[in-house]
Write a protein that binds this DNA or RNA. Structure first.
Lengths: 105, 105
DNA sequence: TTGATACGTCGGAAATATCCGACGCGTCAA
DNA sequence: TTGACGCGTCGGATATTTCCGACGTATCAA
């Protein structure tokens, strides 16, 4: 019943790790689950969240399901961050100025 | 009892909006709360989450508390995304290839 | 001092998230 | 066909999140 919210999908460390794993190539569910200290149902439910956020895609191969990474929705997060990039580089520059100031004393 | 987790802090749309608002400058709590359809305690608790994630800093001014944006922890998210940027540009390029292929038909 | 304002936080309600065991369905190998 | 495997999903337990009203504390204006 939840919406496909990319930010919410990324809020869980297991789901973030799944995405990192999938960079190396598609993986079947049991294969993925063996890497975590979690049961298969839990991993399967995490994959459902990632699927709803369109961050992964499933490819059935016989009785297995290989999950593929689809990183495109991550651009939403990237775009959101861009609203701060300028400001935070500004702040980093200001911080450096302070540090320079301090080191000159 | 929760840790200062930047990803979790960003998972809530109210908190994301608070951060966007604070780009324009520091704001007092009631001032912030009036912008949302939320009571002050709720906003105050969102600010606590953001404070634990070190995304905001408080500056007491008399009986008010002005909250300042500190975007530096966002670099953690940015760094995490960088683990995908290359891959996803690759995927976008592949997508464009497919589209080119299609349009040539 | 007195009354109003700004805020944090507690207690509790309601919703949501996380996880597991159990079950059912489709697929494979024999 | 039979039995084992891979998977999704349901029911339910537990934990966490989100929100509010109520309260206490500090500050301000008069």
């Amino acid at each position: 019943m939840s919406e496909p919210d990319v930010f919410s999908a990324l809020s869980n460390p297991v789901r973030r790790e799944i995405l990192l794993q999938l960079r190396k190539g598609p993986r079947a569910v049991n294969d993925l689950a063996s890497g975590f200290n979690l049961g298969r149902p839990a991993v399967s439910e995490h994959l459902q969240v990632l699927r709803k956020a369109r961050l992964v895609r499933e490819e059935p191969r016989g009785r297995e399901r290989y999950y593929h990474l689809d990183p495109r929705p991550l651009s939403e997060v990237d775009d959101w961050l861009k609203a701060f990039t300028h400001y935070w580089k500004q702040r980093l520059a200001a911080l450096e100025d302070v540090l320079d100031e301090e080191s000159r004393k």
